[in-house]
Design a binder for these strands. Structure first.
Lengths: 210, 210
DNA sequence: ACCTCTTGTGTACACTTGTTCACTAATGTG
DNA sequence: CACATTAGTGAACAAGTGTACACAAGAGGT
């Protein structure tokens, strides 16, 4: 009859966060999840929830923090694995797609949170994206690929890149995940987006052509 | 004691859709709305809901249809008001911002729906965006601004434009709406995004520079 | 003027929800 | 080892939920 088992500290906490992500992965929207539903999915009694979170928004915020870790891991892998500068975009997008696939639930949560109910979660995800964009800017500077761009223009460029990739998330999460053909299409399309943006950046002179 | 009043056919239907949008405008997420909540906001008895919609998803789908009308109105205005080709981007973005402001709730619903709970609503909004992109492509062709682009490349470009603008929605809806300074910042930034994309398109040769 | 269909109302019911409370087993520190 | 703290459990409750049903008022066609 479900004895107590407190094996490791914070195990239930992790189970709850996992449960929320699992439900999101099943197509539910985070904003529509309830405490009881999450605890049920986690196989835990409802009252346990309050030992770790004040409410669902709180859980959301802690998920954002973990999302930050996932994104940082992804950045690290991209930095380590992108060897040739001429395939930078292609390989980066591939790494992104691969991470989005293996952390599907996390990225689904991210896509939802951008227009979610909790202002705090929204701001948190937005802030992660800003960080991501600024790191991208640093990398491009270091590789001396954008010497002709002002800081402000580089900022715009990286922001646009990150947004485009983030938007591709909604494409990616819309297809079934093991539909290799569709995933490949999305990968190609996203790659082209970024190439288009970087061609624009390469020819940018501070004024518009149109 | 709340007599029957069926003045016009479909009045309650409109009240219910308005109520849902109002709640969304107040910061609620569509996925978290309930039937009773919506009817309460509409000042209507819960059972009336079923006279017009099968469930909340159904209401969402019908909202998407109306959203289509809003978008078409916006396109028409853009086509009529963009006079000088050299200010095409700037003026189009301005019109977009203005429409997004005056139909705030609708666009909020759109931003939410992109990563929403109902797959059908998601697909509906996505389809509206595709239509928008294709119309944009037609216009650019007609104005002979993209003669050097293949159909496929034009398609990519317009898609990227529409996505960037749509993403700006989440910026726009995050600020208070009468915060003119912030709105102006978003307008400028979105304009720059599009300019960057079009510079890229102007110099696009089917291969990437990076 | 009649009848029929549509639309809105009130009541009812079985469930689900968030949250509180008192209780208990495991844990780590002295 | 003793003890305080932490993290789990179960029962309880008031409030809210989706949905079904029977009924009534107005609209529209004949």
């Amino acid at each position: 009859m479900a004895e107590k088992q407190r094996r490791k500290p914070g195990e239930t906490r992790a189970k709850l966060m996992d449960a929320a992500l699992t439900l999101v992965g099943k197509g539910r929207h985070f904003a529509s999840l309830g405490i009881r539903e999450v605890t049920r999915q986690a196989g835990v009694v409802p009252t346990s929830f309050y030992r770790h979170f004040r409410n669902m928004d709180d859980l959301g915020l802690q998920l954002v923090d973990e999302l930050g870790l996932v994104l940082r891991r992804m950045m690290r892998e991209a930095r380590g694995n992108v060897l040739q500068a001429d395939k930078l975009i292609e390989e980066s997008v591939a790494i992104f797609i691969s991470h989005a696939q293996s952390n599907r639930n996390f990225f689904m949560f991210m896509a939802q949170g951008l227009a979610g109910e909790s202002r705090a979660v929204q701001e948190g995800i937005r802030s992660e994206m800003r960080f991501f964009a600024s790191e991208l800017g640093n990398d491009l500077r270091r590789l001396r690929l954008v010497d002709h761009l002002s800081d402000a223009d580089l900022d715009i460029t990286c922001d646009l890149v990150v947004r485009s990739v983030a938007f591709s998330l909604t494409d990616l999460l819309g297809v079934s995940g093991d539909d290799d053909y569709q995933v490949e299409q999305i990968r190609k399309r996203t790659t082209r987006f970024l190439q288009l943006i970087f061609v624009g950046a390469a020819h940018w002179d501070g004024k518009s052509g149109i």
